[in-house]
Amino acid sequence: MNDPRVCLLIVLRDQHELLPELLAHLRPLNLPVLAIDDGSRLDSAARLDHLAAQTGMELIRLVRRSGKGIAVRAALDEAQRLGYTHALQHDIGDAYELAALEALIARSRRHPTTLFFGVPLDRQGMAPAPQLGALLAGMNAFSRRVREARPGVRLYPISSFNQMLARFPCGSGAEFDVESLIHWRWRDAPCEPHPLPLLARREGRGITIAQAWASLLMHLRTTFGMLLRSPWLLRRLRRDREPQP
């Protein structure tokens, strides 16, 4: 593979006031920025237009609120069209140590086919304990690594990830993060965690009934998908446990 071209993806909706601070924090990474506006209000959209004109970032706008999954898919399609090979997706409300993000990009250059996901670490260097949803995801993916995954940061190999999404679009909302990672592991594609010391985390907006329902449906889909694939997944599990000659 030629030298990877990495871009920064940021999905937001009505959060224009958080973007300048995040861009300033991430500027030393020297990555071109693709911001995805998932149906912001008119006043917020206007401020994003102004910020795009000031900073030169690429602004992708979804006219209606479509959900994180659809926004990320649209951004990855555009990133591939623009010639990028990898995309660092960074949630709008978090901030991580720059050295850890630089190390993540360096790992991706050494392992260009691997999907990396960030594992946030607290001030004591501890990762959060897996919640029930993460345990279910790890079980359905037949992968301990997936059990460690958290929202916040992903580093996608764009072409192969988009090929997977063309067959399995995954959830349209926040459940996309988990479901896409499960499908990725079902393909026996490599994924690895990467520790990211957390500097700041803004409180989210809470989980709505619609989001909880979408998450439940996602777990049901992936459970049935796991059962259908279980003969092959069990053979793969035995293969991975066999000692190498």
Rank of each mutant, 00 (worst) to 15 (best):
G171R: 11
G138T: 07
R81Y: 06
L199I: 01
Q124W: 06
V146R: 07
F142M: 07
W184V: 06
R110I: 02
N162I: 08
A87Y: 04
G125Y: 03
G133F: 09
L136E: 08
R202M: 09
E148S: 10
T85K: 03
R150T: 05
D188N: 14
L98N: 08
R110T: 12
G125F: 00
L76S: 07
L132W: 14
L155G: 09
L181T: 05
A106S: 11
Q131N: 13
M164F: 01
L198Y: 02
L199M: 10
Q131S: 10
Q124S: 13
P130S: 07
P157S: 04
P195Y: 07
L104C: 08
L132F: 14
T113R: 13
L199Q: 06
R202F: 07
G138F: 10
I105Y: 03
Y96M: 08
P128D: 09
A103F: 01
R109N: 11
R81L: 08
N162A: 03
L199S: 00
A103M: 01
F116V: 07
R144S: 13
S180A: 15
I92P: 07
Y156M: 05
V178W: 15
E102L: 13
G138I: 02
R187P: 06
G83K: 12
G204C: 04
R154A: 09
L181W: 14
S172C: 14
A127Y: 13
F142N: 09
P130N: 06
I158L: 08
P157C: 10
P190C: 06
P169L: 11
T114F: 00
L88P: 03
G118V: 01
L115T: 02
H194E: 08
R150V: 02
A95E: 02
G173N: 11
F176N: 03
N140L: 08
T85Y: 06
N140A: 07
L165Y: 06
L136G: 04
R185F: 12
A137I: 03
A166Y: 13
H111Y: 05
A174C: 13
L155E: 00
A137H: 09
W186K: 00
V178G: 02
M164Q: 13
R202S: 01
F142A: 10
S143Y: 03
A141Q: 09
R110L: 12
G204A: 10
V146K: 06
P128C: 13
E97G: 10
I158N: 02
S108T: 04
E203I: 09
G83E: 11
A134L: 10
E192F: 02
L82V: 04
E192A: 09
P197M: 02
H86M: 11
L155W: 09
R109V: 01
S159M: 07
F142D: 03
L165G: 00
I105D: 07
D77P: 02
S143H: 05
R185W: 09
A87E: 03
E148F: 10
P157H: 00
Y156R: 00
Q163N: 12
R81V: 12
H111T: 12
R110G: 04
A95R: 15
T85P: 06
R144G: 13
